[in-house]
Amino acid sequence: MKILSDIAALLTGMWITWKHIFRRPVTIQYPEEKRTPYPRYRARIVLTRDPDGGERCVACQLCSAACPVDCISMQPGEEADGRRYAEWFRINFARCIFCGLCAEACPTLAIQMTPDFEICKRDIMDLVYEKEDLLIDGCGKSPEYNFYRHAGIGVTQQRGEGIEEKRPVDVRSLLP
């Protein structure tokens, strides 16, 4: 009989919800109890330094080009020795969607995501972070990497002195 199986289905549902009344809630009471996010969680963005303490960012604009909501802007500058840096660097966290594309685009691993997700502010203008707010004193997730040691020819080292770089071949030695 269909009606009997229907009633049985209703009662089964009622029984399941009844059992759930006595389950322990899975709620995390947020401001008091906090859950530790995973290390690769994508939240507040930082600019890291290389192991020698220099700024990693070379103001190449790749992150700002990758950003789908256009919330990164910067002004590139150049030191006397030819090393590029950002004169100012600004991320508008009110617009950021924490997609992580900027961190993926960055060739120097300067821009990185951190698990710090609590960046609420009363005033929306306080969510515009300047370079001073973004720059940290550590290397972030890749402690060994130093972009200039690989590619900083003529700035930090002479041609052929970089890591994993072969010395230039003396073309005359190749002549027959």
Binding site: T17, H20, I21, F22, R23, R24, P25, V26, T27, Q29
Partner: peptide, 10 residues
């Protein structure tokens, strides 16, 4: 409250 309990909330 009861709906929350049924849904494993507080």
């Amino acid at each position: 409250k009861v709906l929350a309990w049924i849904q494993d909330r507080k």
